[in-house]
Design a protein around this nucleic acid. Structure first.
Lengths: 331, 331
DNA sequence: CTGAAAGCGCTAACAT
DNA sequence: ATGTTAGCGCTTTCAG
């Protein structure tokens, strides 16, 4: 900047003004400065600008990594990539940058670090896992944070999420409409989102005067192996079922594989519905019936909410509508 | 920081020193300051620190977004998520943060922006597409940049990539060993990586005294629809083939689907091999034979190379070994 | 319309 | 062992 000032024969103040398009500076000078900046490929140092302006146009996005006992298990669910893409778009649209970090799910406090050190104006967390309390603490401490997940009672932090109860309800109703009566449920109901899907599942059963059979509910992790394990566990229990509702498409896919290994066909022997509507669901064999999460809206809503919070305003949690997509795995 | 200084009854310099664990400061004072900082939940403002130290521990990671004529098509290939994860890990390991941005593939220059504005010390670009020249320009301009992709002649920028020729060779040899003779090739050979895989493919054919049949090579985009379109195009051409090698697992999957729609079974009628070894390949039906890209090493290599470059040293392009994974789709 | 000067939060000589 | 001072690159009063 000093260089430009010297070359243009003006002061840095003028350069600064010119570059920011201030009307206070002579049209001609401004053009000259602009031109000079372009030819020198000069761009304002955002770090310094931020420091001076006490502003910041970066938000933190945190993806939790599951660390099981041995290996650090990576989240490979394509749903996350979709969410990331959606966030990246929404942020770009608003002129914000995205600082991505990956944090062990069991030390979520680290998620606030980029905020504490002033690098970001707030944090978007994808997935609330079972760390309600830690999230509450962070929010109470004043960290602007928005979580993709379910709305819980006594929640101090802000969430944006799909309507999980409706999602569970839609999927289960659909399976019931196909004449299925013994519907297995795959998903870790310790996690708020899965719990609410389970709630919708129960509700749909009750509408038909059916009671949920605990033998049909298997809590498996969201890791892809979960589907295999779930189906094996059901076999171990000797459970009989003619349909299966899994809490993610990935689980549904591995479950279908495990069923196939048992010699059962989908949808003939077992009708299957997943959750998320990741792209691969379309060309899985059979194509997956699933509950679509509104990805594009999700990104926008998360960003909008975070910006509210970051500006010191309060923001309400939001629930986005979900939609049943019927494909061959259930009909 | 000033607050802490006041409360501790020392100067900010002392606080700064104490916080950085300098031995120059009295043990006792240091503890007091540390304690104070903790209780006030104070953390150093990294922006200011960076400005002062002229350092920076953030690297930019750019994912190109394909924008076709109408909609902005998102890259949904899980391979990218894997790469992101790998990069995130490698960066964390080295104490670096990751600024993620998504850039239209046809205005790649924008990729350097976070560098120009001083936010990152360099840029890692996932995929070189067909923008060799732009990349060369950026490198020539002095932007520290490392690209995941193939090594090209007259290349000024640094690449890290799998050994694509070997990958193509391995896959094709394997298909030939299965007794297949008419092997279709799906992939956009305008893109350097695909071109080299094609080269390996040709080489394997030649080893058997076979000449590549141009009718069997279809240039399709890396978007998942590519697989479908490729198979349809082959049908349109009236090409006969008993095997298919696709440049990504996603392409292989959609191709298999399209084949199924034509009433052909895999691997019986057509043996199929993909590329990348994304996780879903394991539980696709049939499980996919594929060429594994060394993801974990990739992340580490990309980061290591970028750090070299960022420190002003020169770095050589690297090629990582690939490995054939045989599964049911080809045997 | 433009320049001089102060200061964002931090660190590093250079004193003491 | 600690404080004083200057300055990283920028913006913005406040004076001209």
């Amino acid at each position: 900047m000093a260089d430009i000032a010297r070359l243009a024969g003006v002061s840095t103040s003028t350069v600064s003004r010119a570059l920011s398009g201030s009307k206070l500076v002579n049209q001609e000078t401004r053009d000259r400065v602009m031109e000079l900046a372009r030819s020198l490929k000069y761009t304002i140092n955002i770090g310094a600008q931020n420091l001076r302006l006490k502003q910041n146009r970066t938000v933190g996005v945190v993806i939790p990594a599951v660390s099981d006992t041995h290996t650090r298990q990576h989240l490979t669910d394509p749903f996350f990539l979709g969410m990331l893409g959606s966030l990246a778009d929404a942020l770009t649209e608003q002129g914000f940058d995205m600082l991505l970090s990956r944090v062990d799910a069991d030390q979520l406090d680290a998620a606030a670090q980029p905020y504490d050190t002033g690098r970001v104006i707030g944090v978007i967390l994808i997935g609330q896992w079972r760390h309600h309390d830690q999230l509450n603490q962070m929010a109470a401490r004043g960290v602007p944070i928005v979580v993709w997940g379910a709305q819980l009672p006594q929640q101090l932090y802000c969430t944006v999420g799909g309507d999980n109860v409706a999602g569970g309800l839609l999927a289960t109703r659909h399976l019931l409409q196909q004449g299925r009566r013994r519907i297995a449920f795959l998903g870790d109901i310790q996690l708020p989102e899965a719990a609410m899907r389970y709630q919708g599942y129960c509700q749909a059963l009750q509408e038909q005067g059916l009671a949920p059979d605990p033998a049909l509910q298997v809590s498996v992790s969201f890791l892809p192996e979960g589907g295999t394990e779930g189906v094996q566990e059901l076999a171990r229990r000797g459970a009989t079922y003619d349909a299966l509702f899994a809490c993610s498409d990935l689980l549904a896919m591995t479950a279908i594989n495990a069923l196939r290994a048992q010699g059962r066909t989908v949808p003939h022997d077992v009708a299957v519905a997943g959750y998320d509507d990741i792209e691969q669901s379309t060309y899985f064999h059979p194509p997956l019936t699933t509950v679509r999460q509104p990805l594009a809206d999700a990104g926008r809503a998360l960003v909008a909410t975070l910006l509210e919070l970051a500006e010191g305003r309060s923001a309400a949690s939001q629930q986005l509508p979900t939609e049943l997509i019927v494909r061959a795995s259930s009909v």
